[in-house]
Amino acid sequence: MMIVEDEPIIAMDLVGMMEHAGYAIFGQFASVAAGLSGTAESLPDLVLLDENLGGEKSTPLLDHLLAKGVPVVIISGYDGEVRTGVPRLSKPISEAELLSTIETL
Score class of each variant (00 low, 15 high):
residue 1 M to R: 00
residue 3 I to A: 00
residue 6 D to W: 05
residue 7 E to Q: 02
residue 8 P to K: 09
residue 8 P to Y: 01
residue 9 I to T: 15
residue 9 I to N: 14
residue 10 I to Q: 04
residue 10 I to L: 05
residue 11 A to L: 11
residue 12 M to L: 14
residue 13 D to F: 13
residue 14 L to V: 07
residue 14 L to S: 02
residue 15 V to C: 05
residue 17 M to E: 09
residue 17 M to P: 06
residue 20 H to E: 15
residue 21 A to H: 06
residue 25 I to M: 05
residue 25 I to F: 08
residue 27 G to V: 04
residue 28 Q to H: 15
residue 28 Q to P: 11
residue 30 A to T: 10
residue 33 A to Y: 05
residue 33 A to C: 07
residue 34 A to R: 06
residue 35 G to P: 07
residue 36 L to P: 02
residue 37 S to M: 13
residue 37 S to E: 15
residue 39 T to Y: 01
residue 39 T to M: 03
residue 39 T to V: 05
residue 39 T to R: 04
residue 41 E to L: 15
residue 42 S to E: 13
residue 44 P to L: 11
residue 45 D to W: 00
residue 45 D to H: 07
residue 49 L to M: 14
residue 52 N to P: 00
residue 56 E to K: 13
residue 56 E to A: 13
residue 57 K to V: 13
residue 58 S to W: 01
residue 59 T to M: 11
residue 59 T to L: 13
residue 60 P to A: 00
residue 61 L to K: 06
residue 61 L to M: 07
residue 61 L to A: 06
residue 62 L to Q: 00
residue 62 L to A: 01
residue 64 H to K: 08
residue 67 A to G: 09
residue 68 K to H: 14
residue 69 G to N: 04
residue 71 P to F: 07
residue 72 V to T: 09
residue 72 V to I: 01
residue 73 V to K: 08
residue 73 V to P: 09
residue 74 I to W: 04
residue 75 I to R: 01
residue 77 G to F: 01
residue 78 Y to M: 12
residue 78 Y to H: 14
residue 79 D to R: 13
residue 80 G to S: 08
residue 80 G to P: 00
residue 85 G to F: 03
residue 85 G to E: 08
residue 86 V to K: 04
residue 87 P to N: 03
residue 88 R to H: 14
residue 89 L to W: 05
residue 89 L to F: 09
residue 89 L to H: 10
residue 90 S to A: 14
residue 91 K to Q: 05
residue 92 P to E: 07
residue 92 P to R: 02
residue 93 I to C: 01
residue 94 S to M: 10
residue 95 E to Y: 10
residue 98 L to M: 08
residue 98 L to F: 02
residue 99 L to S: 08
residue 99 L to W: 00
residue 100 S to D: 15
residue 100 S to R: 15
residue 101 T to V: 11
residue 103 E to Y: 09
residue 104 T to W: 07
